[in-house]
Structures are given as C-alpha cells and as structure tokens.
C-alpha cells in the first residue's frame, strides 16, 4: 500500500474535511487503488513528452484573452441568491478564525 492513513488525514485537513475512522479506512483503500491504476501510465516512457496541463496547447495567442471591456455584474440580489445568510448587502459567514 502506498497511501497511508496519515496521507488521507493530511489531505482531509487541507480540504477542511472531517472523516471518521471508517471513512478514513475507505479513502485509504480507494485512493490507493486509483493511484495504482494511474501508476500503470508510468510503464510508458514519457521522458521526451512535455507535460500537458491544458488542451489546445498550440492555440493562437488571440484565443487566450479578451479585451478590457466592462459589463454590468449581477444585481446585488442575484449575487447573494445562494448566500446561506446575508446582511448589509454582503455574505455573512461564521466569524473567521485565522488558521
């Protein structure tokens, strides 16, 4: 096994996830099998291939941007439509504790 319980808990902490023991064990197994499957790709020699993060790598420059024109945004009401709680035209969240 390449993925340990510690790895899972670390990633969970970064993702703000609370996992119980059963979930942790399941993720260890799941992540491990996913990574093992991907591992298969390493059987190919890709040393001469540039890593590709985006498709359309060779796109002409002009495809990658827009001109600096502004457009009206959502009305405030719409912007806040999904807010669980709101006040003074703003999203309201539980007091932020710096972490």
């Amino acid at each position: 096994m390449r993925i340990t319980e510690k790895d899972v808990l670390y990633v969970a902490a970064l993702g703000n996830l609370e996992l119980d023991a059963a979930e942790t064990a399941r993720f260890v197994a799941d992540l491990d099998s996913i990574l093992s499957y991907v591992e298969k790709l390493n059987e190919l020699d890709t040393s001469a291939v540039e890593p590709m993060a985006q498709v359309l790598y060779d796109a002409p420059e002009t495809l990658t941007w827009r001109d600096d024109h502004e457009r009206p945004g959502f009305p405030q009401e719409k912007s806040l439509a999904n807010a669980p709680e709101r006040g003074a035209g703003q999203f309201k969240v539980a007091k932020v504790i710096e972490r």
Binding site: R66, D68, H69, E70, R71, P72, G73, F74, P75, Q76, S79, L80, A88, G89, Q90, F91
Partner: peptide, 25 residues
C-alpha cells in the same frame, strides 16, 4: 476597467456585491 478573468467592473466604492458575476463569485 474590468477584472482579470471576467468583465465585471473594478471600480472602487460601489455598493457591495454589485460588480460580481458567475466567474468572480
């Protein structure tokens, strides 16, 4: 005039959450 990845205005001092769109939300 507009934001880096969407066309919302960058103006300072507008009412809160009025220069927002699906991209910057």
């Amino acid at each position: 005039r507009s934001k880096i990845f969407c066309a919302c205005s960058t103006r300072f001092g507008d009412p809160p959450n009025t220069n927002t769109c699906p991209v910057c939300l």
